[in-house]
Design a protein around this nucleic acid. Structure first.
Lengths: 210, 210
DNA sequence: AAAAATCTGTTGCGTATGCAACAAAAATAT
DNA sequence: ATATTTTTGTTGCATACGCAACAGATTTTT
């Protein structure tokens, strides 16, 4: 498999050929898409960061997904939605590639190599998305905040091959990602420090165990 | 896209051609695979049911995934694992198709139509797996048991287009799926009944609201 | 450089929920 | 048909965690 970067370059170089793709830029704060009756649309985040937000009927806001470089999203990847509304919101300025889900399957008349490669790359992205989702589920199924944090640190640590890691987003967002209350999480972080499990300096965390 | 059934039939009819696939049957209780250094292997459950089980370092067992007809799984779809061991355990007798992840990408010399169709079907399965995973995350990110249950019921209800639904697994398993304590969940179910939100008769639930 | 917005850490309080234990019911195995 | 295992419902207890509120630090905007 190619590197992240190669895939990234391929996606950025795409121009509409045998089927239609659209690129659009969004400013921070704009709504990129809603998950409501666009079942055919797939989106890839080329640059920037975006959140998938749920407002439930009480108006409570939850971040249920966080997207960054090469994240693939869109209603086609979501359960047909019932009660609550889902939005994808640009957290920073973003460039997004849109295309129709069907183009992944429909063979183009010319059987052009571009179309083939495109499908392949998208499928690879989807697979890495599956890994991401499984990672998150792995964390969400831990029964308490401490285990969620430690598992999360472990994952980062084994990715970077280092006991010192840097949290890639704000602690507020981390709490959302782990689906716990922010203040409760901060409390637990303090306990972990007191008990000598970790050291913390801003977003730098050092694991002291093992 | 074809129906579930068509995909199912296609998969069952697979015989090794331009690359190697293996079919094997497992008895209830057998270990189908472990997530440990088989990064290349993908598995599809042709018949039966299986659970993805995590044992953490305390020996605590958690069901972190549940597989049934046409579920696709395998370490390739999982974060490189660090601390705890993952097993896929046959919950009933199972038939499983194994093949190498690489075969999804490598173009076979003959460019045979079988290989093409195979890749396509697998990619569709993976996409439906993404929908499944997103469904679960949607549920896991709800902040309390009541909301988890009601959302779960809603999803089932809108799938079946009926206010009366049938839980497709035991309540013990449902608790695992929602990652809550079983007794706490039963307690919450009782409350929902008392307060007139639902009716319950065994695994049949009727939603009384809206 | 000042003003505004967001992020972070802390704490008190109440409660939702995890845990353990048990008995009855249901399902499965012998 | 009987025995064994699994599932289900219930309840008491303890506590982990969500919530609200606030102040200081940090970042972003103007």
């Amino acid at each position: 498999m190619q590197s992240e970067e190669e895939i990234s370059n391929f996606l950025k170089s795409i121009e509409t050929r045998c089927f239609k793709t659209t690129k659009r830029s969004f400013f921070k704060g704009e709504t990129i898409t809603t998950y409501l009756e666009k079942r055919n649309q797939l989106c890839i985040l080329l640059t920037g960061e975006a959140d998938l937000i749920r407002y439930d009927f009480n108006g409570n806001k939850t971040i249920i997904g966080q997207f960054s470089n090469n994240s693939i999203f869109g209603e086609a990847l979501y359960p047909a939605n019932t009660n609550n509304e889902l939005f994808v919101l640009a957290k920073t300025n973003c460039d997004v590639l849109f295309f129709s889900y069907d183009n992944l399957w429909i063979k183009c008349k010319q059987n052009c190599s571009f179309h083939k490669e495109f499908s392949e790359q998208i499928n690879k992205l989807i697979i890495s998305q599956v890994v991401e989702l499984n990672t998150r589920i792995e964390l969400l199924t831990k029964k308490n905040i401490r285990d969620k944090l430690l598992s999360y640190f472990d994952i980062l640590s084994s990715k970077k091959l280092s006991k010192t890691i840097s949290i890639p987003f704000t602690f507020t967002d981390l709490a959302d990602y782990l689906s716990v209350d922010r203040s409760a999480m901060t409390r637990e972080l303090s306990h972990l420090i007191e008990e000598g499990f970790i050291e913390k300096k801003g977003k730098k965390i050092t694991l002291l165990y093992e």
